[in-house]
Write a protein that binds this DNA or RNA. Structure first.
Length: 565
RNA sequence: UGGGGUGUCGCCAAGCUGGUAAGGCAACGGGUUUUGGUCCCGUCACUCGUGGGUUCGAAUCCUACCACCCCAGCCA
């Protein structure tokens, strides 16, 4: 059954078509070898998940391999903490790079040797211009650049200068190594791009071994080449860089993978800009990179998303080249689709209203055996205590009930799930006129929630025995951003104006006893309320903390909204 | 005014060796139901950015426009 689901219609996309065609023509000898190449300068987010699922997924589907490679060529922005979080995120998502964990910094020696080759070929030169001069002389989009005065230095002089750059003789910014291509090229990327810059900085892996560091364009293609990558999949903004990718490999005459670009993911109500995510963390708008409101893999994990749901989402959104903005509701659907199958059901009352069953014996307690899932017997069962005083959801009682109301109202009979039918006899109010308690009567003949005389009730309520209830902290996370496109700030406003100030509400709920014994990071469904997960950081036995992942569909709320109730 | 890309239902997205518009999400309507959940059934693009053209026939080919995205880091 689940096998059918997994092997059924896995959608196609243009990259699969390219690979299938390559396999048909034997372009790579039937090999498929991809790589996921993050820069360790932040935590991975749902956008990276798309790339991870693509690269690892393609490799798996075509019987190939996928490497994990850290693009660590800029010591100023990279840290070991990020390397660790990235490894954890990829593994948590369910992918395995086996023994193929690589670092661009592993190739620094080799990259350096190739740079000297380029110099000897007369294809690269050391430029003494300042960064400002280089920018100025690069021209503009519609105006060609002008050659650097240092462009025609001899290979010997370039070699000497480059070696001295490597030796640390010059300060940061004094010189760079540039490719000698064409300062008038219509593609600005090809106007003598920088290959190496001087950085007297400590690298998280190579320490103080280097004073010059290679640029992305130079490093990435050669790393791919070194690893024998067949299909180098990256996002759309690198389309212009493909020309340099190809130039570098062809000029050096080395193995040449094919770069393929796809559109990056955009999600409504969600910021996926690394710069903005860093801002959210540093300015304290969230508690950290794994705050449940963050779109990071670790944030989604803590929020209660499962690896399977994220993989399913990445499969469903497809892969294309058109800019897109995917609705958050699709992500939620993928989560519900997964959790509905395997999340055990429990009862918790978020906003309690006291109910006294007047005709139920004072000291009696019954232990009901509840199935943990209405359809999946393999999820087992648990016992739930029932007694004279209970809590039900305050929202489940209406004094003036609308015509289609199925829940509790004065004089109305409903079912307490798996327990008894009860009828509301009296509404107790305080001096202010607020309802503080309901006095009800139960029908002993309806034990288990079935009536023997065939009479039916329309509503079923979740409930908790007051004497046995445990207090649970429930965190109701919402969207961090109030606008569908958080970057589309209101007139005269900024990105920050879209941060929703009330995206987290914490309530103390009355929960059935079994909930106090759950292990951290256990997904559950609270009957009629939604999917929750025990917090992996703050949850302790006896003092449960739940994060809300997603609400259930609520057709009553919708009817009310539409005025059909 | 340069170069590189992209435009198919509210949101994604198949289709693009021409033959008369898949699927998913969302939405809406109905049935089942001890979660107003799930599940099941049904509705939802005479039209493919726009205008011409070729053709018996075009989302698919040609052409001219229009719109949007990316590129002028010693970031990736």
């Amino acid at each position: 059954m689940s096998d059918d689901k997994a092997t059924a219609a896995t959608p196609t996309n243009f990259i699969k078509d390219i690979i299938a065609e390559d396999n048909r023509t034997g372009k790579w000898g039937g090999r498929v070898h991809t790589r996921f190449p993050p820069e360790p300068n932040g935590y991975l987010h749902i956008g990276h998940a798309k790339s991870i699922c693509l690269n690892f997924g393609l490799a798996k589907e075509f019987g190939g391999k996928c490497n994990l490679r850290f693009d660590d060529t800029n010591p100023a922005k990279e840290e070991q903490e990020y390397v660790d979080s990235i490894r954890e995120s990829v593994r948590w998502l369910g992918f395995d790079w086996e023994d193929r964990e690589f670092y661009a910094s592993d190739y620094f020696d080799r990259l350096y040797a190739w740079a000297e080759d380029l110099i000897r070929m007369g294809k690269a030169y050391v430029d003494d211009q300042t960064a400002d001069e280089i920018r100025e002389n690069r021209g503009a989009l519609t105006r060609p650049g002008v050659n650097s005065p240092w462009r025609d230095r001899s290979p010997e002089e370039n070699l000497d200068l480059f070696r001295r750059m490597k030796a640390g003789e010059f300060p940061d910014g004094a010189r760079v190594l540039r490719a000698k291509i064409d300062m008038a090229h219509p593609n600005v990327v090809l106007r003598d791009p920088t290959l190496y810059r001087i950085r007297h900085a400590r690298h998280h892996r190579t320490g103080d071994a280097w004073r010059i560091y290679p640029m992305y364009d130079y490093t990435h293609c050669l790393s791919d080449s070194t690893e024998g990558i067949t299909h180098s999949i990256c996002t759309l903004e690198f389309e212009n860089n493909r020309a340099l990718y190809d130039w570098t490999l062809d000029t050096l005459g080395v193995y040449h993978p094919q770069q393929i670009e796809f559109a990056r993911l955009n999600l409504t109500y969600t910021v996926l800009s690394k710069r903005r995510l860093i801002q959210l963390v540093e300015e304290g708008h969230v508690s950290g990179w794994d705050d449940p409101r963050m779109p990071t893999i670790m944030g989604l994990r803590r929020r209660g998303f499962t690896p399977a749901s994220i993989r399913s989402f990445c499969e469903k959104i497809g892969v294309g080249k058109a800019d897109n903005l995917v609705e958050y509701s699709l992500l939620e659907y993928c989560l519900r689709e997964d959790l509905n199958e395997r999340a055990p059901r429990y009862m918790a009352v978020l906003n309690p209203l006291r109910v006294v069953i007047e005709n139920y014996p004072e000291d009696q307690v019954e232990e009901f055996a509840f199935p943990n899932h209405p359809e999946k017997e393999e999820l087992g069962s648990r016992t739930v205590p029932f007694s004279r005083v209970l809590y039900v959801e305050r929202d489940d009682f209406r004094e003036d009930a609308p015509s289609k109301w199925r829940r509790l109202a004065p004089g109305k009979e409903v079912r307490l799930r798996y327990a008894y039918y009860v009828t509301c006899r009296e509404v107790v109010k305080d001096a202010a006129g607020d309802v503080v308690e309901l006095r009800c009567a139960y029908d002993p003949a309806t034990k288990g929630g079935w009536s023997s005389d065939g009479r039916k009730v329309k509503g079923t309520l979740h409930w908790v025995s007051a004497a046995h209830a445990v207090d649970a902290e429930v965190r109701l996370y919402g969207q961090l951003f109030s606008a569908p496109d958080p970057m589309a700030a209101p007139e005269g406003g900024s990105f920050k104006d879209n941060i929703s100030p009330d995206s987290l509400e914490t309530v103390t709920a009355k929960a059935e006893p079994a909930l106090a014994a759950l292990a951290p990071e256990t997904p559950v469904q609270f009957e009629r309320l939604g999917y929750f997960i025990t917090d992996r950081r703050d949850h302790r036995p006896g003092a449960p903390v739940f994060n809300r992942t997603a609400a259930l569909r609520d057709t009553w709320a919708k009817m009310e909204r539409l005025g059909k109730a």
